[in-house]
Design a binder for these strands. Structure first.
Length: 479
DNA sequence: AGAGATAAACATT
DNA sequence: AATGTTTATCTCT
């Protein structure tokens, strides 16, 4: 694979303050050859910013300078590439021209000139972290990977370091010009967890969406359940203030019921004992995750005879769901109020980025007009206007589109550096369905169905008759 | 009616 | 016991 174009891109990068990160041998950044898988053609190029994003996660090991750090190529809310030409007061950090493409990190790919990039922390916490790291030379960074058993990887919630709350990039203080989300964001350390709990539905996305992001950040978009639990415990509030395991139940419920997630057949790879993995489907990668409830059967239970416990004996479930719904309602009411007052409001997971596309670019449509699709690659075409010679017929695009990570099933979270395959990251960040440049092999009818919807449902499930099962399937498909 | 959360029953690994 | 699948039930929009 030729690396000349990639070399060009790499050599043109302005690493800026990140130079030590890139030079650190323990940080095995992708080689230029790997980069060749990205789209390059001399005059312009396309590079997913996530490819070089690096998260320094001190939560996994504390104190940070003794145990070593963990880093991820796919960051949750860590570092991202930003145009070097834009300073902190810059009006448009994620574009290099006068316009902004906007978008969520992890959701879309931007095209900027190579020289426009600089790696820098996204917020004060990380700024501090970063200086500490650079000062320490970060010589032990790879240690955390030596033991993938999971025990050492449990985030230390009692760490002295402030817990980082997830915030979509579009809300970062320096990420836009006055288009900040003015919804309260509990990230300044002045709020306690209890306060956060009081805040109405602070960005706490639905399970399906959280799972989407969780898997999206994972190498090969694949994780085992236990690591998904860890991720939720670390990055979400779902597990807070609950002694129960209900949130894990909910995770499993969503994984199982939402067709965006599929089980990966294990037994392919050396570490099979770790259990089966869950992976984002190709469709979900392109179009985002849809509501889990949409896969819910509309047909009343016909299987019958399932339980010896009649309904009245059953404890009323879902009551707490009502609480959550009430919170959400409060939040939405607040949003509406804000909108009524003229403020620009972004719902981080149900709305496209606030940045409007430049008028010269044909408008892209969200994946679906009638269905909720969160976390999808909402956005806009992201090639530099006027310079793009790329098209869906471009062989390199098709090459990328055809690429499927063969070793994905071997990965788990967090990945070791060796497992961080940039090609896969690139693959995962290709244009979404709505882009005019998108490689789109999926028609809407190809949407994956929940396992119960497959024709072999009746073969090995349940006491009901096959006919009954099939009947409900067809209804599901058609509805 | 649909979304989302949650509980729970039941099945499988 | 942990995981996976499915249904039920609740609140809210």
């Amino acid at each position: 694979m030729s690396s000349t174009a990639a070399d060009f891109a790499l050599n043109s990068l302005q690493y800026g303050d990140a130079s030590q990160l890139f030079n650190d041998p323990s940080l095995q950044w992708p080689s230029p050859c790997d980069l060749a898988a990205t789209q390059l053609d001399g005059s312009h190029y396309e590079m997913p910013h996530q490819a070089y994003a690096c998260e320094l996660d001190v939560g996994m090991s504390h104190p940070m300078h003794s145990q070593g750090f963990r880093y991820e190529l796919a960051p949750a809310a860590g570092y991202c590439l930003q145009p070097a030409s834009v300073n902190a007061q810059g009006s448009c950090p994620r574009s290099f021209s006068d316009f902004s493409f906007g978008g969520h990190i992890g959701s879309m790919t931007d095209a900027y000139p190579p020289s426009a990039y600089q790696l820098r922390p996204q917020n004060a916490d990380q700024e501090e972290l970063y200086s500490l790291l650079v000062g320490e030379q970060a010589t032990h960074m790879s240690n955390a990977y030596e033991n993938p058993s999971g025990s050492q990887m449990r985030p230390d919630r009692e760490s002295a370091m402030p817990r980082r709350h997830w915030r979509p990039l579009t809300e970062e203080p320096d990420s836009s010009s006055g288009m900040l989300l003015d919804t309260p964001v509990p990230d300044d350390g002045t709020k306690s967890e209890d306060d956060i709990e009081e805040t109405p539905m602070d960005k706490e996305e639905p399970y399906a969406q959280l799972l989407n992001r969780c898997l999206r950040e994972a190498p090969g978009h694949t994780m085992i359940l236990r690591d998904i639990y860890h991720w939720f415990a670390k990055y979400t509030d779902k597990s807070h203030n609950k002694g129960t395991k209900g949130w894990q139940n909910s995770i499993r419920h969503n994984l199982s019921m939402n067709a965006a997630f599929q089980k990966v057949d294990s037994a392919t790879g050396p570490e099979t004992k770790k259990g089966t993995s869950w992976r984002l489907t190709e469709d979900a990668i392109r179009n985002g995750v849809k509501s889990t409830t949409r896969y819910r059967s509309k047909i009343p239970n016909k299987r019958g005879g399932r339980s010896q416990h009649p309904a009245p004996q059953r404890q009323a479930s879902g009551a707490k769901g009502g609480q959550a719904a009430r919170k959400a309602a409060k939040f939405r009411r607040a949003v509406r109020l804000r909108e009524a007052n003229g403020a620009q409001v972004t719902d981080p997971y149900t709305m496209p980025p606030t940045s409007a596309p430049p008028p010269t670019i044909p408008e892209a449509q969200p994946p679906s007009d009638t269905e909720i699709s969160y976390g999808s690659n909402f956005g806009y075409p992201y090639f530099v206007p006027g310079t793009s010679s790329l098209s869906p017929s471009d062989p390199q695009i098709q090459l990328r589109a055809r690429y499927t990570p063969s070793s994905a099933t071997e990965w788990s979270f967090p990945a070791t550096p060796e497992h961080c395959n940039l090609v896969d990251l690139v693959n995962s960040k290709r244009p979404f369905n709505g882009s005019p440049f998108c490689y789109n092999s999926f028609e809407s009818g190809d949407e994956p169905m929940t396992p119960a919807s497959f024709a072999d449902y009746s073969v090995d499930h349940g006491p009901g008759t096959p006919f009954e099962a099939v009947e409900s399937i067809e209804t599901d498909v058609l509805q």
